[in-house]
Design a protein around this nucleic acid. Structure first.
Lengths: 195, 195
DNA sequence: AATTTCATGTAATTCGTTACATGATTCC
DNA sequence: GGAATCATGTAACGAATTACATGAAATT
């Protein structure tokens, strides 16, 4: 059943929900359109796709015209493989979307979740945003405590590094506060308010 | 020769340069004092220490008093193992400190380098800071280009995520600018200006 | 015609964690 | 004397990369 990175699996299903794609294109969109994800390599992506097919969440479509498939099998050449989300895949993705666990608030998981907020209900969005915020606040607490304990023993560079780190986390908390406020106010960030 | 993470190795040598320590203590300082590093597990740390010993960069000291060693061997109990940097280890660390390569500007590598800036010469500091800045500027360029290409096709959440991501990178560039300016002005961030 | 970009894959390797196993020391 | 924390390690596993291998299509 090979490798399945939770994040990659999630992102692939989410991207394929919008429209079928082949592996190469999928990879580009993971790095650019979704912006957030690090560049997953083909060595990760292709085995993952195979595994999702094995689970019945995707189907492979070898070329749109019947000719393509024929030509491919005849000459032994490989045709583009387009992946399409199955009904089971759609269902599975909905489940992943509505489920929130401890992992959800982690850096990369959170970014992946956020990238598909457009497909999520508002209460899930709130759960994800608030969970992320409290995790960051815990992190801040630890940083502050550790800084208070060790401040004197640290040189200026180390201190500056910690200060900058804390400031970054504080900024993300403020960003989350704005988003949460915005969700609460019902100023939905979806494309259209009605229909 | 087992596992050796470049960053962990570097950080361990750097911490032991200040004073000898045992593994458990070392691990805490990696997570707190240096603040930057993710929590390396014991399963990573201890094998790494053994490998550094095998390289001749560290020596193990089993208890400070001879009694400890005797008691340990008699009862079969393990004593605390304190690791001390050897002359070769010190030399190796200096080499790592002065060497800069493509890896140096990567997120985690950079943080590790910065954490030991106090032990570095100013021109190395400048190389590291300026290298980091230009890598971030490249990243910004790519983000801007990708955003310009795909803006229309993205929903508001994805857009907001990208906007926030870019803003974070821009902030780090400004931070680096200040640091570089500060280095240039000669306002050295070391503890004492003389002696 | 040659080069770049598109496109798919596999094997070996790297980096690191989790779960397990063990025991000493300190605090209450 | 029991719990928490200190302290050291190993084996199995996991996630992802790199290097390799192949070949089609588009561009110059």
């Amino acid at each position: 059943m090979s490798r399945r990175s939770g994040i990659l699996e999630f992102a692939v299903l989410g991207l394929l929900r919008e429209s079928p794609m082949h592996g190469y294109e999928l990879r580009k969109r993971l790095n650019t359109s979704l912006g957030v994800f690090r560049a997953f390599s083909y060595g990760t992506l292709y085995p993952c796709l195979k595994s999702l097919v094995a689970n019945g969440w995707l189907v492979e479509e070898t070329g749109s015209a019947p000719e393509d498939a024929r030509a491919a099998s005849m000459a032994g050449r490989r045709a583009k493989i387009v992946y399409r989300l199955t009904a089971e895949g759609k269902e599975h993705f909905e489940e992943l979307l509505s489920h929130t666990g401890p992992d959800t608030w982690e850096d990369e998981h959170f970014a992946a979740r956020f990238a598909f907020f457009g497909q999520t209900s508002r209460d899930v969005r709130m759960r994800v945003l608030e969970g992320r915020r409290s995790r960051l606040e815990e992190r801040l607490e630890k940083m502050r405590a550790s800084l208070a304990r060790t401040r004197e023993r640290l040189d200026d560079y180390t201190l500056e590094l910690q200060r900058h780190g804390m400031e970054s986390v504080e900024r993300e908390v403020r960003w989350l506060n704005e988003l949460i406020e915005s969700e609460r106010a019902g100023r939905d960030k979806r494309t259209g308010p009605d229909q």
